[in-house]
Design a protein around this nucleic acid. Structure first.
Lengths: 206, 206
DNA sequence: GTCTATACTTTGATAGAC
DNA sequence: GTCTATCAAAGTATAGAC
């Protein structure tokens, strides 16, 4: 049984992802969370903005776990990237194109309207970039190139989400996935193209 | 002197792009447009949603013109793509990371909340895809591959916008631009890699 | 087409009893 | 921590005179 505070955070996360930050009312959030209205301001004295910031960081941390969950067991990074995009496409389809990135809508909304929230989204994106880059480095890619690939992969996914949700088609995600996969493959060191996922000699991750 | 109706559309476009659809009030729009409040419902009997739909289509048409404006005079499509991303990065920087895609924020907001607006964003994205694909075809790329490249380029740009606005850095746009440029280059037919922009024998465009 | 005024709803947020 | 009641403000939208 999740606590009231957690239920509010979960509920907020769902609404913000699907309807955006400005488009979601705090009353709607607490109602769906089966929480008393006053609890919102009890747990989040900073009101909607504090709730938004915590939702962003919480959703961001969960998505980072998902990245690791896909990359770690994969035989190599190329397969991991492919699986990542394929999984995203499947989630998109199953949710009727509602569930894509948990913070992209908020990120665009608040980028020029709320510094605290903008910073929260920036921290999350930075954590994803670091996380993905780490996996690329472990595949033998240079630090600099690994970060570029990570930024590029996340950008391709985010942009594909925008198109796929608007067009109601998984085509953009699939095309972006193919492109990202190809980019990662061509960035692998020669020796790594056959067994890129090998983690011999690497210290514990992160 | 622009008409009242046009001023309202322009004003709405600016606010929607920067603050999103739900985050912008109609009063704010007409006030900034120096238009009487009643004019809004005179010109847009469908209220905010009709205004939103027209803003989306209007902004989309203008951005399509921008695509053509960048691609047409470029010596080749590779240069065109590079210029396109560089221009976007410059606009982003000059506007303090406020002006990126005119409809991306709205697109994510309405994808699961308003079918009329979602359809408007879908039409716009489809027009951009067709427009960009046309330029790629003229460079000798197959119809199917040209569409894929167009989708991919737009997705990379949209996603890079999300990251760049959140991180307040042009790095993502530049990295995505480099990747998109490379993808287009490698898709060119052998004979076209030296003189890809040559439009000999092509019929009038669009 | 524009003006003033207003209806109605929802918003985020608070007070005070329990 | 939760309840009920309530607040002021902002939201969209409309009416009717000019």
């Amino acid at each position: 049984m999740a606590g009231t505070r957690d239920r509010i955070l979960d509920s907020g996360g769902e609404f913000f992802r699907r309807q955006g930050y400005a488009g979601t009312g705090v009353k709607q959030i607490v109602e769906a969370a089966s929480a008393p209205f006053a609890s919102l301001y009890h747990f989040f004295p900073g009101g909607k903005e504090q709730l938004g910031a915590e939702v962003i960081r919480r959703s961001g941390a969960m998505y980072l776990q998902l990245i690791d969950l896909v990359f770690t067991p994969a035989p190599d990074v190329v397969t991991a990237v492919s699986n990542f995009f394929n999984g995203a496409a499947e989630t998109l389809r199953q949710s009727d194109y509602a569930d894509a990135c948990p913070i992209a809508t908020i990120a665009l909304e608040v980028a020029s309207t709320s510094e605290p929230l903008r910073e929260a989204t920036a921290e999350v994106f930075e954590s994803w970039i670091s996380g993905a880059a780490q996996h690329f480095r472990e595949a033998g890619i240079s630090t600099r190139k690994a970060r570029e690939l990570a930024i590029y992969m996340i950008a391709a996914l985010e942009g594909a989400f925008v198109l796929s949700r608007a067009l109601r088609s998984t085509e953009p995600v699939k095309i972006a996935g193919a492109a990202a996969t190809a980019a990662v493959r061509s960035a692998l060191p020669e020796s790594g193209r056959q067994r890129s996922g090998l983690r011999t000699g690497s210290p514990a991750r992160r």
